[in-house]
Design a protein around this nucleic acid. Structure first.
Lengths: 342, 342
DNA sequence: CTGTCTGATTGAAAGGTTTCACTTCAACTC
DNA sequence: GAGTTGAAGTGAAACCTTTCAATCAGACAG
């Protein structure tokens, strides 16, 4: 019956309708075995009749805690982060928690607003890929009692749990691969250069370059303003502008979006990939393998990243003897047509 | 001070620390103008001192409603839906509500679980791109008092607000464009065929085909099992397998993921796009224009879709005289290199 | 028939915030 | 100086659920 008399039905209404006490209704909800079968069905019928929905606020107020985990994503439109979210979700599901996603869209104010709300909601824990991992806001969150784990970033002091992927190693793998294929002049494309990710990948690239005994100046750095497709195209134009003799024969891009932009610009301007320009991306998003020339890329264990982060935050939430730890995953190079001619 | 004595600080603690009554603390929180400046700062200092975080459950319990909107996405890894979510977010922000995202991952049980929890949380309203728009679960949600709007789908009866895009028109636009370019044998690629979207886009395609006076049989339907990249590749192989005389010179794909898969397979097997095979996609996701051969696609006003849906759900939540309405947006063809040679 | 045990049910308290009718007090008016 | 006004602050009630000690009814033993 749709008896909507202003407010929603409460346990009290259900109790009245079923002719039992309010404690019994609660028992039906939480410990059905303690209630006789006949009463139980009577109560359940009353609930259905009245369209009763348990009020989570009241429940939580009493219980003191929610059954929710939250992930504040840096950029919901980057497939990398949605994959991470899927990993988190699988761990949350296993722990019988539900996951809510928030999107900061790379904006610090939005991130702060989301974090404030999540604290107020007393979520069990927060996972976040922060705009700035060094921000004091993160400390504040934990100081106020909400467990927090940093995802795909690390903090210089080791004051938080974090999960990330070894970006230096990733950079090394990419450049070693290119060196193996005989390239002796390579461009690194990425930026802003102050981002931890970009810095580390470049550093790894330089290590591999030096290890191969190649002259430092032949690893050219093209700094970009963002890690998106448009910037990839721009970088491509800058490459095309170079005289042939000084033009790199391969490019290592700090993420796949850049690589896809570069690829597009290259093909559009008649450059053959990989014959004239080999390309390595980073992240191995689903669109990398679906590119017209399937992209060689450095794969990160995205789902596992998420899953592990969720497990850490749960440990922090439930285990008194919790120790912060910084988990570092190992990336893996996936070679495809964009570097493999013939 | 990190005085964590078991439980978090409450208004009562703050009141005691600041030497005021509990009502005053509440006033500082909700009507700061009614409190003298000196008391206000004293209370605020006490809050900072104790690391006070307002308990949203208690607030909501008292207020009866939350300041939250929710969107249950069909597939968080499809950029189309994250763009819709961004539109919703902008409307939510304007109304000073926050948005939580849930992902059903195309699974009915997950969708149901999310909907149940959102009702319990007494969210202001729910937006959902349902696995099955005809599901009785949706009626249940509304019957129990939570406003609900259907996004990017429609229901046959008009019992819900919904926002969608005119898929028949989209199909017509795509095929008209191909006919204009002189194609007389075209493949429609999409499926599962029972999906409303796919059905309507195909129907529009057929209308345009018939209107051009072309023989019905020359619009070939290749049914796929899903709308993803892999199925696009598969479809490409099926096309390649056809004898040249019977092979379509153009393909209209029911979404961009299919189109990208098809494009990849085509280029990989040496088919020149668009000279030997023109391709039209649908959705105009960001990766469409970034494809190696930029994809002609039917653009849907994704952000506006989300924004409008959010406005409708808010109207349903706040306006007693609310009337359900089905908003239908107009798609637009964006012509790019995948159909434009020369 | 008394006493004991068990399972089912009850009723009241607690949890943190907001609201609102009420009190207090200082400043002002005539 | 009696009376009025307004601003500032107070305190109890209400929101809905869960928990737990207490009660009840009936079965059973002695």
């Amino acid at each position: 019956m749709v008896t909507r008399e202003g407010r929603a039905a409460s346990v009290k209404d259900v109790a009245a309708a079923a002719g039992v006490s309010l404690g019994t209704v609660s028992n039906v909800l939480n410990r059905p075995d303690r209630v006789s079968a006949s009463t139980r069905t009577r109560v359940q019928e009353a609930m259905a009749e009245l369209g009763f929905v348990r009020n989570e606020s009241a429940r939580q107020l009493r219980a003191g805690t929610s059954r929710t985990l939250a992930y504040v994503m840096l950029d919901a439109s980057n497939p990398f982060f949605t994959d991470v979210a899927q990993g988190i979700e699988s761990a949350a599901e296993a722990a019988d928690l539900s996951l809510v996603l928030c999107n900061s869209g790379n904006g610090a104010p939005r991130e702060e607003a989301h974090l404030a709300l999540l604290q107020q909601q007393r979520v069990q824990g927060v996972l976040v890929t922060p705009v700035n991992p060094e921000s004091p806001v993160l400390e504040e969150v934990r100081r106020r009692g909400t467990p927090l784990v940093i995802v795909d970033r690390t903090r210089d002091d080791r004051s938080f749990c974090s999960v990330a992927v070894d970006d230096r190693l990733g950079g090394r793998l990419a450049v070693e691969h290119l060196v193996d294929r005989g390239h002796t002049k390579v461009a690194f494309i990425g930026g802003p250069i102050h981002l931890g990710q970009v810095r580390d990948r470049l550093e790894g690239a330089r290590q591999a370059w030096a290890a191969a005994g190649l002259p430092e100046d032949d690893l050219v750095v093209l700094a970009t303003e963002a890690l998106d497709v448009q910037e990839g195209r721009n970088a491509g134009q800058r490459l095309s502008g170079l005289p042939t003799t000084r033009r790199p024969t391969a490019a290592f891009c700090a993420n796949d979006l850049l690589a896809l932009g570069l690829l597009q610009q290259a093909i559009g301007s008649g450059t053959r990939v990989p014959e004239q320009l080999a390309i390595v991306g980073y992240d191995d998003i689903v669109f990398a393998s679906a590119a017209a020339v399937p992209l060689t890329s450095v794969r990160q264990p995205r789902q596992e990243l998420g899953r592990t982060a969720a497990e850490l935050v749960l440990d922090e939430a439930t285990n008194d003897a919790h120790q912060h730890q910084q988990v570092l995953f190992t990336p893996e190079l996936v070679a495809r047509a964009s570097t493999l001619d013939g």
